[in-house]
């Protein structure tokens, strides 16, 4: 979104999975809008370090890399400790990291079911548990979970992935209810098909079908999902909580 305003000036955000796709677009959007960011990724890479250095310099914001494998709960805890040790307020948490998976219900192996839930639901659940303790103390915060329209629509091949993202929506709504008295908001974004690496796990005919069903005859750009995440992080959405925003171009 082109903007002359810095919608997140003075805010600090934690974003998971921001080295590519939707997470990277959110990182870019937040930096452009003046947020300091703890940029969480699985491991260090020259491309990621270059990205955050450029974004930081161009926008005069602090971007601190935080590395952890979300399957490793000890690493996850150390990451939280690093954020906590910075003594910065955490105004925004974006739970973005996740893995895609596409298989028919009767052909979905149990180990894959467990792995997808570990990454897409259990890790953000634990991470949010830790970080909401900081938000409870400061009596403010906006939590954004990146779910999927697969959580809302019964798409073939999405029993595992869609269920993990539906769990995330449920968690988000419960957080919104339980923590509202602490000034904490929680909302989900449900992107439709988006032009990221995750498309590689989908058959080409499905991608074409969705494109054709979409009134705009296109699939989403990651920046279009980031626009919704910017809105929910900003003070433009202070009275919005417990909601799921579909960003799917109006797929029927």
């Amino acid at each position: 979104m082109a903007s002359n305003f810095k919608l997140l000036a003075g805010k600090t955000a934690v974003i998971t999975g921001c080295n590519r796709g939707i997470g990277k677009a959110i990182l870019e959007s937040y930096a452009v809008n003046g947020a300091s960011v703890f940029a969480c990724v699985r491991k260090e890479s020259p491309a990621f370090l270059k990205l955050i250095q450029q974004l930081s310099e161009k926008n005069s914001v602090s971007i601190v890399p935080v590395y952890f494998d979300s399957r490793n709960h000890e690493e996850l805890k150390l990451a939280v400790q690093k954020i906590k040790d910075s003594k910065q307020k955490v105004d925004v948490l974006v739970n973005n990291s996740g893995i895609g998976y596409n298989a028919l219900f009767q052909m979905s192996p149990h180990d894959k079911l467990k792995d997808v839930f570990d990454v897409n639901f259990i890790a953000p659940f634990i991470f949010t548990q830790y970080l909401t303790k900081l938000m409870v103390r400061q009596k403010s915060g906006s939590i954004i979970t990146i779910s999927s329209t697969a959580a809302l629509d019964a798409n073939d091949g999405k029993s595992v992935y869609g269920a993990s993202k539906a769990a995330l929506i449920c968690m988000t709504k419960v957080i919104a209810s339980e923590l509202k008295s602490f000034g904490i908001r929680a909302n989900s974004i449900a992107p439709g098909m988006t032009d990221t690496d995750m498309l590689s796990c989908l058959p080409e005919e499905l991608i074409s079908k969705v494109r054709n069903q979409n009134g705009q005859n296109k699939i989403a750009k990651p920046s279009e999902i980031a626009d919704a995440a910017l809105f929910l992080a900003s003070d433009l959405s202070t009275h919005i909580t417990g909601q799921v925003i579909r960003v799917d171009g109006g797929v029927k």
């Binding site: 805890k77 939280v80 400790q81 906590k84 040790d85 830790y130 303790k133 900081l134 409870v136 103390r137 008295s181 602490f182």
Partner: peptide, 18 residues
């Protein structure tokens, strides 16, 4: 339960523990 969460958050901050 809400007071409990608030107290735990305060303890963590006071003693810098998780």
């Amino acid at each position: 339960s809400m007071g409990h969460m608030r107290m735990i958050a305060e303890l963590e901050e006071t003693f810098n523990v998780m």
